[in-house]
Amino acid sequence: MRFEAPTSPEDAASLLAATDNARVLAGGTDLLVRLRAGQVEPEMIVDIKRIAGIDAITSEDGGWRIGAGVSCAAMGEHDALGADYPGVVEGAELIGSTQVQGRCTMIGNLCNAGPAADSVPAMVAAGAIAHVVGPKGTREAPVFEIPVSPGKTSLAKGEFIASVYLPPRGARGGDAYLRFIPRTEMDIAAVGCAVNLSLADDGTVEKASVVLGAVGPKVIEAAEAAAALIGTTCDDTALAACAEAATAAATPIDDKRGTVEFRKDVTGVLARRAARIAYTRAKGETS
């Protein structure tokens, strides 16, 4: 096995393209576990953290660009990012312990393509765009299209995601992410749910996105759950309809982390609770 730490995105892409079985190392909080367990045996590990600027959070055209080397802890410490996208940040900050937070990255979480990835639903709900670098140049792709199935992404050989772009927040917008775990920390989500809302001048919901995690082979955009919120003030009736639609949209499995029935029930509960928080935030009230 080889270890390489290129300093430019182009060098990283050509290293990745030249090797049949190469792995990108960002935070390493997933890759190193798999390496030790013998689940992966790559010929090469490409550490992308020495690429200039890859650890930056930058304001861009009113939105935010988050580099692939940005630790989730660094996202949590960025006040302006947290003010615009509290839901995205709380998703990122729920991954692992304090120690894991110091290393793990949102883009690594995305590229693992784990169905229960905590940071992905809120990114998708926000309409985030991945900036993909590959041997043939760069391309932009919606974050929703990156994971395909458990452990599999749509990235081609040699491609990696250098950054993710969160579009401008705009006025009267708010998001939230909630997950359910058996303990208070250190678990993989049994259910995750992100809600992203924009309000009209009259305080009713104009645009909504409800995205579910851990209840399907990849994140699920629960369009009917979102539609249930449009035009409402997220009153109890709207929230109940949203919850019911979210439960209906969930397609979970029975496993060691929960049953189908449990996950479907809790999906609705979290959708209702997350929508309420997102609405409060969109109105500019504290939550």
Binding site: T184, M186, D187, K256, R257
Partner: peptide, 15 residues
Amino acid sequence: QNPGYLDYRIPVASD
């Protein structure tokens, strides 16, 4: 199915 501290869930300080 759960031979690790991730899914063999012993109490953590915040519990």
